[in-house]
C-alpha cells in the first residue's frame, strides 16, 4: 500500500521528482524518430524496402536479443565489480523510480513475507526476521543507471547464491524472477543470480534498508544496470521461462549487464 510519508534524510525531493518524471513511460512515445532521416537510415540498415516503424522496431529488438547472448558470453561468474572505500559512498544516495517517493510501497516488516516459488524444494515463505538471521555479506559498489549517472552505495544482506542453495533451488534453471510490491518485476539469468556479489540486500550502509531504497528487500547485483536491481521484493521464482520485466518489456535491453 502506498501512503504519504516523510522523506528519509538525504533524499532531495527535487531530484526525486525530476527522476520520476524522466522515467515515466509514455504510451504515446514511439521508439523511432519519425522523419526522413530515420526512414532513410532504416531502409539502409535493414537492407529492404520495409520502412514502417513496427518492422524496424522488431529488427532492433532482434539485435537487442543478440546483444543479450553476447553479454551472457562476456559475463564471468568470477569477475567482480569494483568495490570502494566508505569515503566513496555517494551521499545522499539518490532515490530513483518511475514514481515519486510518496508513491513508493510502505511495507510493514512484521507482516511482510518473501514468497518462494518455481523450481525450489522448500517453498516456505520467509519472514524478515528469519532473513536477518542468515549470514551477512557486505559490499560498497557502484550502481549504474541506464540513464547514465552512477552512485556508490553500501549494501548488506544475504548472498543470493547461498539462499538459493538453502531453499533447494534448481541451480540449473535458467532464470530467477522477482515480483515487487508496487507491481514492478524483472527476470535475471541464473549465472548472475549465482554471482558472489549478487545479494538480497536488507540494509543500506549498515542500517535497515530505508523505504526509499526498497525496504524490506532489494536484490542488489552490481553486475547489472540499476533497473535490474528490484526493490520492495515480495516474491522470487526459479524457472525456465523468461517472464520479462517492467522496463525490459518496454524496450530496454533484457540482459543489461555491466
Amino acid at each position: 500500500m502506498a501512503s504519504l510519508k516523510k522523506l528519509p534524510p538525504g533524499v532531495d525531493p527535487r531530484l526525486l521528482i525530476k527522476d520520476a518524471a524522466k522515467s515515466l513511460p509514455q504510451p504515446s512515445r514511439r521508439l523511432f524518430l519519425r522523419g526522413a532521416a530515420s526512414l532513410g537510415a532504416l531502409s539502409m540498415l535493414t537492407g529492404c524496402d520495409i520502412i514502417d516503424g513496427p518492422t524496424a522496431e522488431n529488427a532492433l529488438r532482434v539485435v537487442s536479443r543478440f546483444n543479450d547472448r553476447i553479454q551472457a558470453l562476456l559475463f564471468s561468474e568470477t569477475t567482480l565489480a569494483p568495490e570502494y572505500p566508505e569515503s566513496a559512498i555517494t551521499r545522499p544516495f539518490p532515490f530513483n523510480a518511475y514514481y515519486s517517493l510518496e508513491e513508493a510501497p510502505d511495507i510493514d516488516g512484521e507482516t511482510w513475507q518473501l514468497e518462494i516459488g518455481g523450481l525450489v524444494d522448500n517453498k516456505k515463505p520467509w519472514r524478515l526476521a528469519e532473513l536477518n538471521q542468515l549470514p551477512e555479506v557486505s559490499q560498497i559498489t557502484r550502481l549504474v543507471c541506464v540513464e547514465g549517472w552512477s552512485a556508490i552505495g553500501s549494501w548488506q544482506g544475504v548472498r543470493l547464491s547461498d539462499f538459493l542453495k538453502r531453499i533447494g533451488a534448481d541451480l540449473t534453471a535458467k532464470y530467477v524472477w522477482f515480483q515487487c510490491a508496487e507491481g514492478y518485476s524483472n527476470t535475471i539469468d541464473m549465472p548472475t543470480a549465482l554471482h558472489p556479489q549478487t545479494i538480497m540486500a536488507l540494509k543500506f550502509d549498515h542500517q535497515t534498508l530505508p523505504a526509499a531504497y526498497g525496504f524490506p528487500l532489494k536484490i542488489r547485483m552490481p553486475t547489472k544496470l540499476g533497473f535490474k536491481n528490484p526493490k520492495y521484493v515480495t516474491a522470487m521464482w526459479v524457472q525456465n521461462n523468461d517472464a520479462g520485466g517492467y522496463w525490459e518489456n518496454q524496450g530496454y535491453n533484457w540482459f543489461s549487464g555491466l
Binding site: L31, L33, A37, V63, V146, W247, G251
Partner: peptide, 23 residues
C-alpha cells in the same frame, strides 16, 4: 532536442546505439 536526435526516448535510442555499434 529530440528533433535532431534519434530514437524518440531513452530505450529507443539505446536500441539504435547498441545495434549500430556492431556496424
Amino acid at each position: 532536442p529530440s528533433q535532431i536526435a534519434l530514437g524518440g526516448w531513452l530505450a529507443g535510442a539505446l536500441l539504435w546505439h547498441f545495434a549500430a555499434m556492431w556496424l
